[in-house]
Amino acid sequence: MAPVQVSGPVLTVRRVDAYHALTVVAPAIATEFRPGQFVTVAVGGPESSMLLRRAFSIHDVRPDHGGTIEFVFEANGPGTQWLAGRRSRDLLDVVGPLGRPFPLPREPVSCLLIGSGHHSTALFPLADRLRERGGQIDFMLGAASADRVFGSLRARRTARSATIATDDGSLGARGPITGMLSQVIHEARTDLIYASAPLPVLREVVALAGRYDLPVQALVEQPTACGTGVCMSCVLPVLGSDGITRIARACTDGPVFRADLVRWDDVGTVPFDALGAPGWKPPRVAPAPRAPRGSAHGG
C-alpha cells in the first residue's frame, strides 16, 4: 500500500533509558504498517530551519484511537531534541509507512534477531509477527552500555532466548554482540537471521553468517533527507538479480536488504563496476544475466 502524509496528534513522549519513545495517532499508517517499515517526521514546526525529515523505524503499532504508531530515538541533535519536547496533542507531520518490510519465511523456522542500540526497535514488531506464524525466535541485543540496550525485557518475554552484550559489561556479557554469534547460532539451530544495527555491526554479522551459509535480512539505516526516494542521499551499492551493481536507495529499495546482495565493503563509495560509474561504458549488446554472487560480499 502507498504511504500517506498525515498530521497526527502526539499521544505520549516517554523516556526509555537513554532514548525517547514517541507515540502518535496515525490510523492510516498503523493499519498498513509491516515490520521493518519506517516513518519520516518533519521537525521544528512549519517555519523550521531544519529542512530534512527525520526517519525512524516503527517500533510498535496499537489499535487505540483508531491506530497509533510508536518510534524510538536518541535526542542527540536539534531535530530529535525538538521531538523529545513534544507534548500530548501537539500535531506531528508524519509520512509512512515507508520502505520494503522484512520478508517473512513461509515455513515456521528458527529465526535469530540481532539488534544494536536503538536499531533494535524495528525487530520487536517483527518478532510478534514471526511468533504468530509459529516460528522459533532468539534475540541478541547489544549496545555500548546497559541504558542503551533497547527492549531487553520484551526480548526475554517474546523469545526462546535473549543474549545481551554491552561494550562496558554493564548488562550481559562484556564485548561486542557479534562475539557471541557463533555460539547462539549453534545452540539455537538458527535457519535465518534478521539484523538491524549500524553498518560495522551488520558487516560483521553478515561475514559470520556467511560461514554458516545462513541467509541474513539486514535493515540498513543510511542518512536520508526525504525518505520518499527523491533526494538520492541514502544510497549504497547493491547487486541486482542480473548481476549488475546499482547505486540503490536505502529508503525505497530497502531499508531491508538481502544481505548477500549488498556490497558491504563498498558502502559509501561508487564501485568501479557499478552501473554508470566513472569510466563505465554501456555494453554494446545486452550481457547474458549472471547469477548473484551469493554471500561472497559478506567479508
Partner: peptide, 23 residues
C-alpha cells in the same frame, strides 16, 4: 546520454534553512 552512478556518499548535509548536496 548514459546511465550515471553519481557521487559517493554522504551526499547531503542540513544547513540553517538549507541543504548542501552533491548527488
Amino acid at each position: 546520454l548514459d546511465p550515471r552512478a553519481g557521487r559517493p556518499s554522504p551526499r547531503t548535509a542540513e544547513t540553517a534553512g538549507g541543504l548542501l548536496s552533491s548527488v
